[in-house]
Design a protein around this nucleic acid. Sequence first.
RNA 1: GCGCCUGUAGCUCAGUUGGAUAGAGCAACGGACUUCUAAUCCGUGUGCCAGGGGUUCGACUCCCUUCAGGCGCACCA
Length: 563
Amino acid sequence: MDFKKEIAGKISQLVDMEQEKIMELIEIPPQSNMGDYAFPCFQFAKVLRKAPNMIAADLAGKLAQDNVIGKVEAAGGYLNFFVNRAEFMKEILTEVNEKGRDFGASKEGDGKTVLVEFSSPNIAKPFHIGHLVNTLTGSALEKIYRHLGYHTERLNHIGDYGTQFGKQIAAYKHWGNEEALEKDPITELLRVYVMFHEEAEKHPELEDEARQLFKKLEDGDPEMLALWQKFRDLSIVEFKKLYKEFNIEFDSYNGESFYTDKMGEVVQMLRDKNLLVESNGAQIVDLEKFNMPPCLILKSDGATIYATRDLAAGLYRHRTYNFDKCLYVVGNTQALHFKQIFTVLKLMGFDWADNMAHIGTSLVKFADRKMATRSGDMIYAKTVLNEAAEKTLEIVESKNSGLADKADVAKKVGMGAVAYTILKNNRDRDIIFSWEDILSFEGDSGPYVQYTCVRGKSVMRKAGDFPSTADYSKLTTDEEFNLVKLLDGFKAALKEAADRYEPFVITRHVTEIAKAYNKFYNSHPIMNAEPEVKAARLHLTKAVCNVIETGLSIIGIEVPENM
RNA sequence: GCGCCUGUAGCUCAGUUGGAUAGAGCAACGGACUUCUAAUCCGUGUGCCAGGGGUUCGACUCCCUUCAGGCGCACCA
């Protein structure tokens, strides 16, 4: 039963407005003592020629208590509803405990496909904190949509193509060490790549060599191809280790190289539709009437560019998946690029481009300067995770040194702290990197939520086998009621997170649940309560842990058994 | 110069389609462990919601404008 819907239905019998419209108007009062739902009556003032507070009072008099409504009050221009608590507790807790990890799942996504492109690191390059932001955001969005019943495809558009690989191959041929490559591929590849740039300053002929090698690679030279393939494979193995930490998987690793033979068609189509214009020797699509700079399709040397690849990829994805939605989870800095791509696709006559969206992710910066990729002035994801696990281990050591699998717990909690920090705020805001923030373990943090759940699980373990059913009407305190309201709110949070493409909605909601449970936990006994109350509280605990774990798993966080 | 984003408490940030006294965490200070894990809980806030106009019964929220910061503006991705 949906209490909000029921209430809207009752109101619709009294006023000249449809139930759906009323649903939209109903809000949650700022203070819980005002009520559980509120219906603002301001809109009727003009039509009825009556003051809003009079209307509210009038309506309040016509609504009787029943199994949905516990109490109705008129306050100001608001009609405030207090739900029938006993019924509410029973409904929601039964639903959560029946559905388990599927709580919050819906049918809205039935038969629909959502593509989520995210992570997309460059091979042979280290995975830095910026990639991590992007990866966690994309993965969370994908999991949110999956939970809502959509069929999803996780696309990792690997950066595995371009002239840089000519340099990479040249560098490796000159100074590479095979043993080091097998042992720690990215480090070795980066080492020789950096070396190439240093050497190229003294010996410019290296640049020519790199160009030639890239040409050979493009022409399918077996030796070059084998090396490139090797770099690619080893890099992906490395990336997968990182993905595993956050339970992330991909359905496709088709990257830039995959589209090399698919760009000709796009160029031809643009030409056929007379969209291609020459400008300074290059071929562009003019976007002036859209108030945008032109979209470069072919460079003056005739070579393709990333925009060409993204157009080809868009076309390919539409044909292959026939998506209902295609999300590009890529840094905010690329907003213009995607706006151009979508516009060009529309100009080509592809209306499905309207179903594509760029989901810009936060830029990670240092307090005083930009996090630069080229100069190597950046923080690696690996470093962050290692630091997090290390710090966590120290804390575990001091708080719970008797713990069995300390290293594993430290890892889960450390990862939790990192993922939480990254996914707790709006994507529009830049993230100022700070060790203090990312390794935060108190209050608003991953470990706080994990700890809450761990305590709950611990109580359940101590309770052993408890009855499979409980009388939820025994849960009569405000703390318990507020907790259940939040559990119910998880459904709306999922929906909002999906609509806004904002994982932080989940992060914050799960935190609210944890806070409410901690408050309850500290003010009411579970184990020492009367048998019936105890049973009900254990079921409440089970429901809370369930929803917290579901929410956390969406944002890539696991909960250990102990911590 | 043009475009996009941001500006809310000392710090980091929420604030639902405009609505009831603007909320959290951190930091600070004071309290709660013979009791289910104190990574917890409870208490303490004089915020020109960047400034200025406008729309509205009502604006942190919508419109205009100024200021400050970030990002982007074709042969890199």
